[in-house]
Design a protein around this nucleic acid. Structure first.
Lengths: 198, 198, 198, 198
DNA sequence: AATGAATGAGCATTCATTCAT
DNA sequence: TATGAATGAATGCTCATTCAT
């Protein structure tokens, strides 16, 4: 009377290695939602619950809470990189995508608008690396601007931080309106605000 | 280096009611420091410890953590109001004082650059009231600006939020440099950056 | 330029020894109200505040929180003693007064309906002494009862405890109704329910 | 006296999910003891300590302190329900079981002898529901009584509350003696005092 | 590899009691 | 003698992280 191969009780959904990638994706998506709803200080348990996995899985994929935020930002940053690498990329189109992410992801705002005064200092490593990837992506897409010109990418990154600071409000629409008003004050034209490939 | 004459060991140091005002001041000062070092989410116990008082004293003076932040911000806001009310006030002088507080107080940045995504929604009451006082103070001091003009106080508040977003960095000097660069990108001239009456 | 005799500033109402008795009375009255509203676990500070005195005064008159409760009960007990000592006292009249206090004072219920399992063990001294005074007051006023007769004062005290257990409800009227129903189940007739000398 | 093979020193003793049910049981048992010793206001930390678990475990199993009390009472109430549902149930047998729980569980007394004056008003929900279950269990088991008859279940519940008020004393034996004396004063015969299925 | 229970440190808050004035 | 501020221990509750299964 050998036991059936799969399991004899309620199997906790051990789908083998296939599940690993699926779980990681689910965790990042869940984290994005939770961050949007409750801010970056939301408990990790909420993220695991939303993803439908145990907390142990979260720790298997991410060593600490900063790694979770980093993974969420990774996706934002990648879209900007791809927008910048597109054959028909213009400063306007790239800023449109960047602005989309600013309005959609509270975590992304925090990335670019860190107060730098120590609070989030735990994970400067992650934040700095990601921030530099954004900077590199924007390099070569310096927009024209009415009034004071942006002369270098560092000026543009400053402008991005400034727009980040302006992006407040409870709904995405309000945040988009504020972001566009901010770009206008800077004299910068922004293309359609949308995600890159979604 | 005089010490109280009696009791040199365990004396809980009850200085009587006279200490009340002194303690409140010490608490606000401690809170300002702690906020600058650890952000607005710093534990209240750290503030009490820094102020050299028991936690109960903190609660005697401030009903909740928002009241503590409010008391800290109160001073920032008041200086801006006074700068705006000075007989020789100009937009440049007022913005200089405002910029000083942006570079000096992490809490003040948070006031003007709230992410608004729900996280800190507990104390919108305080934040809104204080923010409106800043807005009223700035009313009538609309600066000229190169490039895109600021047409109304709401534009100016947007600009302030934008500058707030740019104010990052570990030292006050770096933060001031970033703030001034941000104002420059907006085409706004700012006067000397300093506290109003200190 | 000698100073005026009374005081030169806002005098904290130091009316001399006269005030002592007045304060004690106010404290007991305040405690009675607070206990009725918030139960015996109410903070002492609330009692002092209601009495319009500082907390120090409370400690001057009562060494600890049990002494406060004891003082409140003292008054209840005394009225019962006086009702029992009245020339025209009957078991019915005495039980009427006792029942009044049961319905009016949560603390008094606790005195007679102590769970005895340790919770309130801190002040058994007070409670026991007061309880015995009630017992002595009831001695000699054993009521007739339909059904099972009460043979001794200890039976009557048991009956009192039983009625105490029945006295629940948010309003005094409800509590009185429950108390009378309880006495009825015991077959005991109770006179008019009222305070003794008030 | 076997011990786990590995690690004999600091092991936080995470016995895995198997321990969940065991821990819940231990918590309820510990709560019962603590309540008996220190009353319903005992600190939850004491319960967790007695159960040999961390405080977090307590909160995993019970959302708040009322849920803990509810779980303790649940068992008392269930035994009464089962006693009432037994094929040979009589009013005497059911009251015997009820009286057992009155003498054994301070919390159970509190359930039936609530002072209702507001103090413990936080958890009326639990208390009311459980109290009604007792009432339903007693329905149909109205005892005969010498003297004043109990006409309805509400009379019986009043009698139960009265007996609850009489149940005082440091040992279970004393409490049982008081309870039986109380039932006798009510003219009600009670069967053997014992738990239902233990 | 996944689960989710357990741990325990950490923070907020309350309040009895003391004591300088 | 009265005041009421200060103390600090106690308690409730929340999570980040670990780990037996």
């Amino acid at each position: 009377m050998t036991k059936p191969p799969v399991s004899d009780e309620r199997r906790p959904a051990n789908d083998g290695p296939k599940a690993a990638a699926r779980n990681r994706t689910a965790l990042v998506a869940a984290a994005r939602e939770i961050y949007a709803e409750h801010g970056l200080d939301a408990p990790l348990s909420a993220i695991a619950r939303r993803a439908g996995v145990g907390q142990g899985v979260l720790y298997r994929h991410f060593p600490d809470r900063d790694a979770v935020a980093g993974a969420v930002l990774e996706e934002n940053v990648r879209q900007i990189e791809r927008a910048a690498a597109a054959p028909d990329a213009t400063s306007e189109s790239v800023l449109g995508v960047l602005t989309w992410h600013l309005t959609e992801s509270a975590a992304f705002i925090s990335l670019l608008c860190v107060d730098g005064t120590g609070r989030g200092s735990r994970n400067l490593a992650y934040a700095t690396a990601l921030s530099e990837r954004v900077e590199r992506a924007l390099d070569g897409h310096l927009p024209d601007s009415v009034g004071v010109p942006l002369r270098e990418t560092s000026d543009l990154m400053l402008a991005v931080a400034m727009v980040s600071g302006a992006v407040t409000g409870p709904t995405r629409e309000q945040r988009e309106r504020r972001a566009l008003a901010a770009w206008r004050l800077l004299g910068v034209t922004v293309g359609p605000v949308h995600p890159f490939n979604e």
